[in-house]
Nucleic acid binder design. Sequence first.
DNA 1: CTGAAAGCGCTTACAG
DNA 2: CTGAAAGCGCTTACAG
Lengths: 348, 348
Amino acid sequence: LLDVGRAAGVSATAASVVLNHTVSTWKASTEMREKILAAADRLNYCPNAAAQALVNQRIHTLGVVAVVEGGELNDYFLEVLNGILVAAPRHRQNTTVFTLPNWQRSSESLKTFCDGRVDGLILLAPTFSGRGAVVPEHMPAVTIHGNREVPGVTNIESDEECGACTVVSHLIGWRHRRILHLAGPDGLLGSTRRIRGYRRALSEADLPFDPTLVVTAGYSTELGRRALHAWLQQRAGQPLPDAVFCANDAVAVGCLEVLAEFGVRVPEDVSVVGFDDTYVARTILPQLTSVRQPLREMGAHAVELLLERIEADEPNGARPRQVVFPTEIVPRGSVGSRSPVKRIIGTW
Amino acid sequence: LLDVGRAAGVSATAASVVLNHTVSTWKASTEMREKILAAADRLNYCPNAAAQALVNQRIHTLGVVAVVEGGELNDYFLEVLNGILVAAPRHRQNTTVFTLPNWQRSSESLKTFCDGRVDGLILLAPTFSGRGAVVPEHMPAVTIHGNREVPGVTNIESDEECGACTVVSHLIGWRHRRILHLAGPDGLLGSTRRIRGYRRALSEADLPFDPTLVVTAGYSTELGRRALHAWLQQRAGQPLPDAVFCANDAVAVGCLEVLAEFGVRVPEDVSVVGFDDTYVARTILPQLTSVRQPLREMGAHAVELLLERIEADEPNGARPRQVVFPTEIVPRGSVGSRSPVKRIIGTW
DNA sequence: CTGAAAGCGCTTACAG
DNA sequence: CTGAAAGCGCTTACAG
């Protein structure tokens, strides 16, 4: 099309220069630029992105890599993606989204993403099994909620430990003592941090830590349901916990369902808190007290950091960073003072 | 890199041919291919996507265009995107997501997406004001829930009218008579179809149509809240409706909130139904009877249709199609039989 | 069966 | 101030 542009105007290179407002060693006579602009408009010229990408080595596209568990995207993903999708166009970047079945065998897929179709990669909550550089050396990348440190890649996370500690302290403030924690998947950094926060809150309040009160659930409603159900079944006739601290909101939803099935009222009999402050926390009844992570801001920040990295044009690892966003408790109706009467676990 | 591949092996063109398993006029001696493969692996060769795109005129990327209202993605978007993101890699396509502030001035943006960075476009719930070809002639495109017919572009939709009719008939089956409809935004095809379904159900049951029972809300929780709140305020002292048919689940959430504020129980006093069967329908209490549209399947189907279109390499309009997916009612706890006692609207 | 050459559409030193 | 030329990394007729 460039040569069509020329046909209409006068020159060849000229068109390129005026159409890209390149600030080169030029002054581009006004009349000429007018002519070119007109011609471009007339032929409705549209520069070819691939050709530009080829010569500029920049395609102005950011890749987002996420795992879809069971073919299902979740609210966490939606929120972060929201932040990314809104931030990217502000920097005139496109966003392409890659989905992976799992992180285990992601190394090869990741490599194929590095063929020039994107300028950089945002990895969403990656959990790599081995260490080893999974992202090719010269592909700029940042991780969000990286589970292990990816060597040399800057990671964006939130202060989950602090969030967990705060929300558990909040429960303690309402006079709850026996607080059950439905924890995230074993071994994940996020799970560990929540547990650490939970323990810190207990110890700050001089409460004993009872390991039987920490049970691994996972991050989904179904896993939350199962974990709590099993736990309650096993303890029929024993007293209910005062409160339940759930690894995330999805788990809390499962928790609320099971409690309802057992005839336990929330928050009258038991208080429940979640984590992430997703949409469901506001819509479920009772509304769920939760810990907000600024997921959208984190997504937006990932875009900016990644862009810096791309423009700096230095290999990963040059200036790895750790960015920690604050978390914040959002109090709602699912927390009340400890029930004065001790309730016993029934059977279902 | 190709010439590096050659340096290691023997030839130049050869590498390209074996690395792309092009089925040309070749037989590629086994020893040669071995050598090339080995060299490629050793240098860990990675073909440049931009260069390939430039010569093949195919970049193997599908564009998804959606509007983010108020910078906020919604569950509808998430579901459809889910379908797309899972389907695309099955066809070895990438997905890039474009977000627009609105559809009004989308024409120019759409044009810039047609610079070779994608091979085709999936438009999500576009609402164009003018008619006029908004998508350039030679850019393959499909719409999902297109609001007007985009000339020549095949549209994927669901039988919303039927869904609305079924769910309203369902309410009538529970003996509800005065059914309020919190409708979608004025003028949108989806709103109109829901209203048509609502009216059809009434007429099939020989019930009169009362225009004051159809009130425009919109598609968000907040708009649902406001619409119902205003409606109830105006009618203090008058009888409550038997049931509320909401334009979508988000509106239903707002509806449930307002009813709770007015001290109205669901479903004992009033039944409520939503539309879309999003995540919230399952998690809110009472769980929401809703109409399921197979959004993921629709997204996946869009990918396939678009790919056909791209491969057929014919201009838009050659074979426009209309694909209609069935809808399905999902009964849950928010519907019960009509309250025997007539409840009166209180003030809030 | 194999390699040299042209070309995809653009940009950018480099001579006029 | 302006244009001709080379080159980004690949593919694909086209001669050997």
